[in-house]
């Protein structure tokens, strides 16, 4: 087995040999933000093997419990496996403890898996969830398996192009419409500059009233169709 990646002075170099030959990679733009009533997750929809787009309408926003979701970046196989295991744990937690798991619980399990298997995984995850007690919360788990609670989180190869955009336009306590505009604006830039990101923009809005999906298409200038 090869190392997961190389950390050079100019950033991370993903060791493409480690992605087994032909393995599907989520060269991605993902993000999640806190807003006034909860959280919003967002992602592009491009999945590539090398320069070939293996899937142009991928869903990188994955539900692991009723109102706990995650954004996946890195190896598609690895992140799906991790998300599946977390979904199992959270399902068990809900049943055995007679209360739904909190976002912290989800983040803790994700972190345990990503940290203790760091040598064989290439998974960069963002976890976002809503519950009545804690409201909306966003956690980021980058490559090594550390856990960071954040006001908003961005990840994937496309995120490096939008650090400036997000830092400039970020405001705390945005309305839902403002939040959606922030996520959409950021992902549009990421898609524009990152060859490994593209396709549609998917979002999930998590609030007291549950999970609501959104979809924005490139041929409608990312204006619609909107709520699903």
């Amino acid at each position: 087995m090869q190392a997961t990646g190389m950390l050079g002075e100019d950033g991370i170099h993903v060791d493409m040999n480690h992605l087994k030959k032909g393995e599907v990679n989520l060269g991605t733009s993902i993000m999640a933000i806190n807003f006034k009533d909860g959280v919003i997750l967002g992602a592009d929809s491009r999945t590539t093997t090398g320069a070939y787009i293996a899937n142009r309408v991928t869903d990188k926003l994955t539900q692991v419990h009723d109102t706990i979701w995650c954004c996946r970046s890195g190896s598609a196989a690895d992140t799906q496996a991790v998300a599946d295991i977390v979904q199992y744990h959270l399902g068990m937690y809900g049943i055995t403890n007679n209360e739904p798991p909190s976002t912290q619980t989800a983040a803790a399990i994700f972190q345990e898996l990503c940290y203790s298997n760091k040598d064989q995984l290439s998974a960069g995850m963002i976890i976002a969830g809503y519950d009545h007690r804690h409201g909306g919360q966003v956690y980021s788990i980058p490559l090594g398996g550390s856990l960071h609670k954040q006001a908003y989180a961005i990840g994937g190869s496309g995120s490096t192009y939008i650090y400036g955009y997000c830092d400039s336009y970020w405001q705390e306590n945005m309305s839902e419409a403002e939040g959606i505009q922030f996520v959409k604006g950021a992902l549009q830039e990421a898609i524009k500059w990152d060859g490994s990101s593209g396709g549609v923009i998917r979002m999930v809005v998590l609030t007291a009233s549950g999970a609501q999906r959104h979809l924005y298409l490139p041929d409608q200038a990312y204006k619609g169709p909107g709520k699903q």
């Binding site: 009545h132 007690r133 409201g135 966003v138 856990l147 960071h148 954040q150 705390e172």
Partner: peptide, 25 residues
């Protein structure tokens, strides 16, 4: 509201949005 053991960072300065008040935990 307890942090996850070992976590760093603290989320938005204004606190989490969308909390439902009224309940005791």
């Amino acid at each position: 509201e307890l942090p996850v053991d070992g976590q760093v960072g603290s989320g938005p300065g204004v606190g989490s949005g969308g909390k439902k008040g009224g309940s005791k935990y």
